[in-house]
Design a protein around this nucleic acid. Structure first.
Length: 663
DNA sequence: TCGAGGGTTTTTTTT
DNA sequence: AAACCCTCGA
């Protein structure tokens, strides 16, 4: 195409507040469409970018980053908040490729990782100890369990809610600002009679965390919000250094996060949020897609820009996706369109059983590869991570390398948590929950004795611990002496995380072997852990990363990634957010599984399942296969006949093709 | 009080 | 398959 010289653009560039006109390296106007361009050149002010699936949202943000840097703004004064740190890194890399390495100096990450960094630096302004430990969900649940055991809850005959139920309702309350009582009433009405006890537990929980410098995920956000609003002079100075704020996936932010956004924008008021109300899938974390609709209320001067042209998928896939979202109760007034009119109809594939579904995918994947589609361009998506178990077996048999995202994390396995507990105690002697975990590893120490030792530790720390516990616990003494000496030896030393991890490993190994019958299977995880520790210079950084950005590779997958660069992606739909592939399989589209039976009672949760399906199918560029097994194993009833998911049942022939698998 | 053994129940999604 | 609950012998 011939190059055009456009006078208009120079005129627009002059609208910026730069004193000298800038000669841009990148031809923003011609590399972007109108709406994208408008967003990319936006400088000062508040912007709401509504971007449908595949409309080049990331591209637009990347260009805006490059544009701001080209315009002379300091990259580190630009803050990019995304859903995962991977997403942030990818955007910065792309911007760096577009322009130059200045772009990788942009600040970015998740709300939680940003909170972590900020609070480590400035937390003292609000009285926070900067050596705090971050608790992940299961840590928090363990503490709740401990507290539950400590305060004697009258031995009611009725079942008391479990630790995860208590923690979930508690966390939801903090993330949404809805009182705990209301949450229990709405979601767990059958536990309403325990409300006083639950409140008591959460009270003790809060005090416990505050006393021992422990922050859970929610606390990171709460303290950050608190700091921004009330950190006075320090916060003010900090905020002055943030010129531009960009927030991706805004539809999945919750009340707490939108408060933070407001706090961040309070001085410079240069903010752009990006999202798609039809892709909100995190309500279980307190997200509310109405947040994005209410954004203009929070910022009355917000300008809205809409991206509607899809560059990702074929028209047939878009028609299918539009059909799914059209039946939503709450309408999302937007119709995706594309110029890419060619393409196969999406296939709705019915298999007799789960294994047949797996074998279909294996075969189709191999065929696609023969047709020239690289494995890296193919993904299998599912509602819940266990849906892929059978498929994983078949893929292994067929020697197809894959990596699985989402589901049970490496870091959540008991043996890895054990090692982490040692490292935590080394950084924070007051981390009683980690102590508890370590103590229980030792023969002869159960909940009661551990409890006694914890009391000593919380009172006196490590000093004289042995003398105090000696008369108390004659039988287990030499073990404990060893343990305390070991911890003492490592505490306060300046050593590399890998060095410390190695020493912990040596100490832990005998206990590991006697604790787990299947230690052979688990052993590899420990080695992986040691490997990961090599990447860090500072123990605190290492531990923070493990909580905030845990490696999601577990034993099975690592072996595949080591050997091959090319691999098939298996992923939960939640973890597939924002990504795209040439060919996509959505499996287990069965009533009760997807949508999950958990969502049947409530209209809002059912609607979220629908959006989830929408997200899943809009990941596909060229080929889309939605499959369901007709006979499926049900835990309660054994093998039963199943109904295809309501989202795909009875769909018109013009929108999708029915495939029936035969042997 | 510990820990082993057996029986039951339970399963979404993530920072 | 793992988490939880209960019982019982040491």
């Amino acid at each position: 195409m011939a190059k055009k010289y456009v006078l208009k653009r120079t005129g627009r560039a002059d609208l910026s507040n730069r004193s000298a006109p800038v000669n841009f390296v990148i031809d923003y106007e011609h590399e972007l469409n109108r709406a994208q361009y408008e967003a990319a050149i936006a400088e000062n002010g508040v912007f709401l970018l509504i971007a449908g699936a595949g409309t080049g949202k990331t591209r637009t943000l990347v260009y805006r980053l490059a544009r701001l840097v080209e315009s002379g703004y300091d990259p580190s004064s630009i803050l990019l908040l995304t859903f995962t740190r991977k997403a942030a890194r990818e955007m910065m890399n792309r911007a760096a490729g577009l322009l130059d390495s200045r772009c990788s100096k942009v600040s970015g990450g998740t709300f939680h990782s940003f909170a972590n960094l900020t609070l480590r630096k400035f937390g003292s302004a609000i009285g926070l100890h900067n050596g705090f430990t971050i608790l992940d969900q299961s840590d928090s649940e363990d503490i709740i369990n401990l507290i539950r055991g400590q305060i004697n809850l009258g031995d009611s005959k009725k079942r008391f809610p479990k630790k995860d139920t208590i923690y979930k309702s508690f966390s939801l309350s903090k993330n949404t600002g809805i009182p705990l009582e209301k949450i229990i009433e709405d979601i767990y009405p059958h536990f309403l009679e325990f409300l006083p006890d639950i409140i008591k537990i959460t009270d003790v929980f809060e005090k416990y965390k505050a006393k021992n410098a422990l922050l859970d995920y929610d606390d990171l956000l709460i303290y950050l919000s608190h700091f921004l609003d009330e950190g006075a002079a320090v916060a003010h100075r900090f905020l002055k250094g943030i010129e531009f704020v960009m927030v991706d996936e805004y539809q999945d932010t919750n009340k707490l996060q939108s408060d933070i956004v407001r706090g961040l924008a309070s001085i410079k008021r240069n903010i752009m949020v990006v999202g798609d109300d039809a892709q909100s899938i995190y309500s279980f974390r307190g997200a509310n897609f109405k947040n994005i609709i209410n954004f203009p209320k929070m910022f009355p001067d917000a300008r809205m820009i809409k991206l509607e042209q899809n560059y990702r998928s074929t028209q047939t896939i878009l028609d299918f996706a539009n059909h799914i979202i059209d039946s939503a109760v709450e309408k999302f007034p937007k119709q995706l369109f594309t110029n890419n009119t060619s393409g196969n109809l999406p296939a709705i594939v019915s298999a007799t059983n789960e294994n047949m579904q797996s074998r279909f995918i294996v075969e189709r994947v191999l065929e696609l590869r023969e047709e020239g589609v690289p494995l890296a361009e193919i993904a299998v998506l599912f509602r819940s991570s266990y849906f892929s178990f059978d498929l994983e077996i078949e893929l292994n048999k067929a020697n197809i390398p894959f990596v699985k995202f989402g589901g049970m994390k490496f870091i959540e396995t008991a043996h890895v948590k054990d090692i982490i507990a040692f490292l935590r105690v080394i950084t924070n002697v007051k981390d009683l929950i980690s102590w508890y975990r370590i103590l229980l590893l030792h023969e002869g120490i159960g909940p009661k004795k551990a409890q006694l030792i914890l009391e000593e530790i919380s009172k006196y720390g490590l000093t004289n611990l042995v003398d105090i516990t000696k008369p108390m616990l004659p039988k287990v003494n030499s073990d404990l002496e060893n343990l305390f000496a070991f911890i003492k030896k490592l505490t306060g030393k300046k050593a590399l995380p890998s060095d410390l991890s190695g020493q912990v490993y040596d100490y832990y190994y005998p206990h590991f072997k006697s604790t787990y019958d299947d230690h052979n299977k688990r052993h590899k995880d420990l080695e992986i852990f040691l490997n990961i520790s090599e990447n860090y210079n500072d123990l605190q950084d290492f531990l923070a990363d493990l909580a905030l950005e845990p490696p999601n590779e577990s034993v099975v997958d690592i072996s595949a990634t080591d050997k091959e660069k090319e691999f098939l992606t298996l992923s939960t739909i939640h973890s597939a957010k924002g990504l795209e592939w040439h060919s996509v399989f959505v499996i287990h589209a069965v009533e009760g599984f997807f949508p999950s039976s958990q969502s049947f009672e409530n209209l809002d949760t059912m609607e979220e399942e629908r959006r989830l399906m929408y997200v899943a199918v809009t990941r596909a560029k060229q080929n889309l296969y939605v499959s369901y097994p007709m006979n499926i194993f049900d835990r309660y009833r054994g093998v039963t006949f199943s109904k295809p998911s309501r989202f795909i049942a009875g769909i018109d022939e013009s929108l999708a093709e029915e495939w029936l698998l035969e042997e």
